[in-house]
Amino acid sequence: MTSQRTLIAALLIVLALVAPLVAYPVFLMTALCFALFACAFNLLLGYAGLMSFGHAMFFGMGGYFFGYVVKTMGLAPEIGLLAGVGGAALLGLVTGALAIRRQGIYFAMITLAFAQMVYFICVQAPFTGGEDGLQGIPRRALLGGLLPIDSDRTLYYVVLVLFLFGFGLIYRVIHSPFGQVLKAIRDNEQRAVSLGYEADRYKLLAFVLSASLAGLAGSMKALVLQFATLTDVSAGVSGEVVLMALVGGLGTIFGPVIGAFIIVAMQNYLAFTGEFVLVIQGAIFVVIVMAFRKGLLGEFSDWWKRRRAG
C-alpha cells in the first residue's frame, strides 16, 4: 500500500516536471495557484469541519499585498510573498477570531459577510487601485537577482516548488497530532472539549493557517499574471474555491487539486460563452449536491473499494 502510494507520488512529480512541455505554462501556473487555494480551503472544511464562504478575501488580499510590496514599494518578490502570507494570516486572525464564535451555517454566513466587507474596502481603498486593480506588477529576479523569472517556463518551476511546499505543509498538518485533534473536533466538538482540548484555539489556528496558505496562493497568482484585481476578492471566487474542493472531493487530499484543474480548464475553454460560465458552474454545484456529494475522488475511491470487495 505504502509503496503503491510512493509510486503514485513519484509519477505525479514526474508528470508535474514535464507538464510545461505539453501544456501552456501560464495555464498550469494559474491552475497550481488555485489548486493550493483549494487545498487550503479544504484543510478547513474537510478536516476541521469549518466552511468558510469568504476565502477569496485571503486569496485576493494576498495578491494585493504582493502587488503593493513589489510594484508600489519596489521590493523583491520574496518579500512580496511574505507580505501576502503575513497579511492574509493577520486578516485570518481577526476574521477567524470573530467567526468561530458561531458554528455551522452561521460560520459560513459570517465569513461571507466579512469577505464582502473586505471587497467593499478594496473598491475604495487607494492602495488597491480600485476598479483597475494593480496592473503590471514587475517580475523581478528571485534570490537577490540570481534567478530571473521572465521566462514562463522558469517561473513554472518556481510556482511548482511553492505549491509543493504549501501542499506538503497541509499534508503534514493533516497527519500531525494537531490534525488528529482537528478531526476529533470536527466529528464531535463537545467530546473534544470534554477531553480537555480548547476547541476554539485549534479552530482559530487552522483558520489562520488556511488563510495564510490562501494568501500565498493569491500572491503566487499575482506573481504569475502580474496583476491583482477586485475579482479575486469577490464572492464569486469564494464560491469557485468551494466548487473546486467539492468537485474533487471534500476531505480528500488530492481532490481539491483535481477540482482546481478541472474548473480552471473549464473557465479557459468556456471563456467565449461569457456569463454562461456562471450558469455552468451553478449547474455543477446543483448536480454535485444532489447526486455526487463525495466529489470525483470520493466517488472513485468508493467505486474502487466496492470493486475490490466484490
Binding site: M51, F53, I105, A108, G239, V242, L246, L278, V279, Q281, G282, A283, I284, F285, V286, V289, M290
Partner: peptide, 11 residues
C-alpha cells in the same frame, strides 16, 4: 447553502 448558491448562479 451550496445548492441554493448554485441555483442563484444559474438564475
Amino acid at each position: 447553502f451550496l445548492l441554493t448558491f448554485g441555483l442563484s448562479l444559474v438564475i
